[in-house]
Amino acid sequence: MPSAAAVREIVKEHGRLSVDVETLADDASLYEAGMTSHASVNVMLALEDTFDVEFPDDMLKRSVFESVASISAALVQIESAAA
């Protein structure tokens, strides 16, 4: 089960935020914190690699990568679909 802490670690490493991710709430907007769409691609690649999952095309959208909470929810959805 992917933890919010693990998601935060990936966002911290690849999201190129202009603020420290630890200062953000789980539902705070990562885009407003400075994540570009280019950085969100790297976040997604790292998530796929770390959690050994594949995001289907219909989940590759801005709203899914909006926050730590939305990313965690998407990972749960992918894992439950695979189970």
């Binding site: 691609v41 995001f55 289907p56």
Partner: peptide, 12 residues
């Protein structure tokens, strides 16, 4: 450049 990034992750 943008599409180069998107091509890394798009499935179809």
């Amino acid at each position: 450049q943008t599409n180069a990034g998107l091509l890394l992750i798009a499935k179809e």
